[in-house]
């Protein structure tokens, strides 16, 4: 469970990024996050869990426990793993309804949308969409009962 809201964590990330002077440093940080991202179990690295629309391969799984969603993901590209790490930090352990509604402003606030020219190939947009899809599915499954 995550006791902080999506907004609070986003603000944290934005503040961390404000410490960097250049995009070289930002990338170094993202790469570092990527290297530290835990590996996904081999059993989850199947076609069904692949996120479409990425130049690298991204696997994403989501579990639902006690009203909250927990994400795990991995990629064969380390920058993408860094992006995944940030998305997991913000969204994992949150309530499905909050995830679906989150505008995720940190992506723009840290300059990622304008800077990562290949946002589509990096799969950032596809990953966010897929994470929200999971949240929507769990929301409909458990909270409409």
């Amino acid at each position: 469970m995550n006791d902080r809201t999506i907004n609070e964590i986003e603000d944290e990330i934005v503040e961390e990024f404000s410490l960097f002077d250049s995009w070289d440093d930002k990338y170094e940080y993202i790469i570092d996050l990527g290297k530290k991202l835990p590996e996904l179990d081999a059993q989850h690295k199947i076609d069904d869990n692949k996120v479409r629309g990425c130049q690298s391969t991204v696997w994403l799984v989501a579990d639902y426990r006690d009203g909250r969603i927990y994400y795990n993901a991995e990629s064969d590209a380390v920058i993408v793993k860094g992006l995944i790490s940030m998305l997991i930090r913000v969204l994992s352990g949150q309530r499905p309804g909050d995830i679906v509604a989150a505008p995720l402003t940190f992506i723009q606030r840290i300059g990622m949308t304008t800077h990562l020219a290949q946002t589509r190939s990096n799969g950032l947009v596809s990953m966010v969409k897929q994470m929200k899809n999971y949240a929507l599915a769990y929301k409909l499954k458990y909270q409409s009962q």
């Binding site: 995009w23 070289d24 990338y27 790469i31 130049q55 690298s56 064969d76 590209a77 380390v78 920058i79 993408v80 800077h115 990562l116 020219a117 290949q118 190939s121 990096n122």
Partner: peptide, 12 residues
Amino acid sequence: VHPSDIGTLLDN
């Protein structure tokens, strides 16, 4: 090293 990581850093 994944080609896409190189592409992103070179673009930078």
